[in-house]
Design a protein around this nucleic acid. Structure first.
Length: 518
DNA sequence: CAATAGGAAATGT
DNA sequence: ACATTTCCTATTG
């Protein structure tokens, strides 16, 4: 049983900011495949709010923190966890987001998630608020704040990475204060898993200290947790000097934090009694998921849901967005987008085929054709170094920490043209730039391998070149893909006017050219 | 040492 | 034909 906890900051309950009116040249350029859904969505938050169409985009006001956790839907302890669902945490006035149903990933909470806001002053982040030199943007209501928010939103990404630091693991990462997590989600997984195990087996000796620090920082900075448990806030400073010395003191804190996180996610997982794999859902589970998702996004409950959706998860997964829209004009897009996320998240974790679910007869047929991504172990398996394998193993069962931002899931404001019934993995001829946008739009899948630095300008940074390359390789079924090649491809875009170098060139930072950054 | 930059050729669709 | 992919050399920080 592995689990991890992700902390990220979410924000406010409104996004009444003046929407940036932007033509949608990009859409015109976007090939009508399901990937375009993500590509298109990547900055929906900037689009005019389409009345009636719910969005799950980032919200840029009232900075707030949301703590979410993700891990395997455990096969044990489920009972007890079920007994203490999320509501338990509402005590201090800090309600957690409605339980995301997905055990592996935490989905973004809808606009109005009642979140606490006093965390705005979250330690260590402040200094970054002004660190951008690229904040000048046409939308006053968004820019600075939005960027700040993004920093908070994408969990495992160290704020430092926005500074001059060229690499996620560079000197910058030594700065404890502002580094809640390592930039590499993969590392985080490992750390967490390791920590968990250590905790279970040997409460005392925690050999690997470096990773612990990340987790500890994460846990400790998570004041929500403390408040919820009426714990005296711990002085982070005390850990900066020597974690080893004081470890004993906060060990319980960690336990509580982890427990807290776990319980919450488990409750969610159990609540719906569904598999992490949408394809394994029974029709009734499909209904449960649909309802839950509708509620989560505060969409009008659908009448005759059972009649409208008679298919099981596998069939549901094959439905096109159009079909969703046809059946549920108001919420179809969102549901479809959410389903895509689930599929992606699951597909990205091939090893996670949970055993805990009520296996449905006949569903085993599903995976191969629809989930090419599941094959990634094929090429991870051998030639790759051990570390890679371990990484995959660690990542797989432990869902990518879902930075709840469902930007990716956000339905496009305009009923789009996306033909295929959405499969997640599949080779296909997706373009690299599309893929990158897709990743950028779905931290659920990419972890923090890549993220926006200035969304309005289309500037992004690859935090984990290895991982991004690997993901790209998977998508294109190019096991030998690496960052060297990927970057070469990106460089081709310079000439084509799809991407360009940033003014002040920074390592691993790229920028989409105009229509492509829309 | 990893990243950046391109040229050039190979490849897959 | 096109969009990479692959390989490689040189340069840069």
């Amino acid at each position: 049983m592995e689990y991890e906890k992700m902390l990220y900051l979410a924000n406010g309950s409104e996004m009444p900011h003046s929407p940036q009116l932007k033509p949608q040249p990009f859409q015109a350029l976007t090939p009508p495949d399901q990937y375009s859904a993500y590509a298109d969505n990547f900055d929906l938050s900037l689009l005019p709010q389409d009345a009636g169409i719910p969005t799950t985009v980032y919200q840029y006001n009232a900075p707030q923190i949301k703590i979410e956790c993700a891990w395997d839907c455990p096969t044990d302890n489920q009972q007890q966890q079920q007994q203490q669902p999320a509501p338990a945490y509402a005590s201090s006035g800090h309600q957690l987001i409605p339980p995301p149903a997905y055990p592996h990933s935490v989905y973004p909470s809808p606009q109005s998630s009642p979140l606490q806001s006093e965390f705005a002053s979250f330690g260590g982040y402040g200094k970054f608020h002004g660190s951008y030199d690229c904040l000048s943007s046409p939308s006053p209501s968004l820019d600075a704040s939005s960027i700040k928010q993004e920093l908070h939103i994408l969990p495992p990404s160290p704020p430092e990475s926005n500074c001059e630091t060229p690499s996620p693991r560079s000197a910058c990462s030594e700065s404890i204060k502002a580094e809640p997590l390592d930039s590499s989600d993969i590392e985080s997984f490992i750390d967490l898993n390791a920590l968990l195990q250590q905790q279970q087996h040997q409460a005392q000796s925690l050999p690997d200290t470096k990773p612990d620090h990340q987790l500890l920082r994460e846990c400790l900075e998570d004041t929500t947790f403390q408040k919820k448990h009426n714990l005296r806030p711990l002085a982070l400073e005390s850990f900066i000097g020597g974690l080893a010395e004081v470890r004993g003191d906060f060990e319980p804190v960690i336990s509580l934090a982890l427990e807290h996180a776990k319980r919450e996610a488990d409750a969610i997982c159990m609540e719906l009694q569904i598999s992490q794999d949408p394809n394994a859902w029974t029709p009734s589970q499909v209904h449960a998921w649909l309802r839950s998702t509708l509620a989560q996004f505060k969409l009008p409950p659908a009448a005759n849901l059972e009649l409208k959706f008679s298919e099981d998860g596998a069939a549901l997964a094959l439905l096109s967005e159009e079909e969703f829209m046809r059946r549920l004009p108001e919420s179809g897009s969102t549901l479809h987008a959410q389903l895509e996320i689930w599929k992606m998240a699951y597909a990205d974790q091939p090893n996670s085929q949970p055993i805990q679910q009520q296996q449905q007869p006949g569903l085993d047929l599903w995976p191969p054709a629809s989930y090419p991504m599941l094959n990634l172990d094929d090429f991870n398996g051998d030639s790759e170094d051990e570390e890679e394998m371990e990484v995959e193993a660690a990542v797989a069962p432990t869902p990518t920490p879902i930075a709840a931002v469902t930007a990716a899931a956000t339905p496009t404001s305009t009923p789009v043209k996306r033909t295929s019934g959405g499969r997640t993995g599949g080779g296909s001829h997706i373009h690299l730039w599309q893929f990158l946008k897709e990743l950028l739009a779905s931290p659920q899948v990419n972890g923090t391998a890549i993220r926006w630095i200035d969304r309005t300008k289309g500037i992004f940074k690859i935090e984990d070149s290895v991982r991004v390359a690997k993901l790209w390789g998977r998508r294109k079924n190019r096991p030998a893909m690496n960052y060297d090649k990927l970057s070469r491809s990106i460089r081709q875009y310079y000439k084509k006017g799809i991407m360009k170098k940033t003014e002040r060139s920074q390592r691993l930072v790229y920028q989409f050219c105009h229509p492509y950054n829309q």
